[in-house]
Amino acid sequence: MDVFMKGLSKAKEGVVAAAEKTKQGVAEAAGKTKEGVLYVGSKTKEGVVHGVATVAEKTKEQVTNVGGAVVTGVTAVAQKTVEGAGSIAAATGFVKKDQLGKNEEGAPQEGILEDMPVDPDNEAYEMPSEEGYQDYEPEA
């Protein structure tokens, strides 16, 4: 019985440690998101679009440190934060509304985080759909 109880105690310690790591990862992701939003706020009209992409990228980098179902929630929060940063930029006159959601080359930025393969159960990952990809044929 002692062996059984000791095993359960060790398992509990492992769960607590994993929860603490997840909590730490979420806190880091939130900190990076805040950094990115402050970065966007300090940019001029020309830099705002690039700044919004930076927020998304920093958040995406930190999301990889967070495991399990938390990833889905962090990704949703990050996307809403990026959308909010863009709205703030438009409201303050840093950028025109028609410039939001495009990178410096004018290509749409939507789907940055949505296409990231995420499995809350950590069982399997699927690649994003290939609808947006084109076949590449090298020139002879």
Rank of each mutant, 00 (worst) to 15 (best):
M1W: 00
D2W: 01
D2N: 08
V3Q: 02
V3Y: 11
V3R: 15
M5G: 01
K6N: 12
L8Y: 01
L8I: 03
L8Q: 00
S9M: 15
K10N: 05
A11Q: 00
K12Y: 05
K12H: 15
G14L: 10
V15H: 00
V16P: 00
V16G: 04
A19D: 00
A19T: 04
E20K: 02
E20F: 11
K21I: 09
K21F: 14
K23P: 00
K23L: 12
K23E: 00
Q24H: 04
G25A: 07
V26I: 12
A27D: 01
A27F: 10
G31I: 03
K32F: 14
K32C: 03
K32V: 05
K34L: 08
E35R: 09
V37P: 00
V37H: 00
L38A: 06
V40D: 00
S42P: 01
S42N: 15
K45D: 00
K45H: 01
K45A: 13
G47S: 11
G47R: 09
V48G: 01
V49F: 07
V49Q: 06
G51M: 14
G51D: 01
V52P: 01
V52K: 01
V52Y: 03
V52Q: 01
T54F: 11
V55P: 01
A56Q: 05
T59C: 15
K60S: 07
E61H: 09
E61Y: 13
Q62H: 11
V63N: 01
N65H: 11
G67F: 02
G67V: 09
V70D: 02
V71I: 15
T72N: 13
A76Y: 11
V77Q: 02
V77N: 02
A78V: 12
Q79Y: 04
E83T: 07
A85F: 05
G86Y: 11
G86R: 15
I88T: 04
A91W: 07
T92L: 07
T92S: 13
G93A: 06
G93C: 05
G93L: 13
V95W: 12
K96M: 11
K96R: 07
K96Y: 12
K97V: 15
Q99F: 04
L100D: 07
K102E: 15
N103G: 04
N103W: 11
N103H: 08
E105T: 10
G106W: 07
P108Q: 11
P108H: 13
Q109F: 07
E110Y: 06
G111V: 15
G111N: 15
L113F: 14
L113N: 01
L113I: 03
L113M: 10
E114A: 04
E114K: 05
M116I: 06
P120W: 03
D121K: 10
D121N: 03
E123L: 15
A124S: 11
Y125T: 09
M127A: 03
M127D: 06
P128Y: 11
E130C: 09
E130H: 10
E131T: 13
D135Q: 09
D135Y: 08
D135H: 10
P138D: 10
E139Q: 05
A140V: 07
A140E: 07
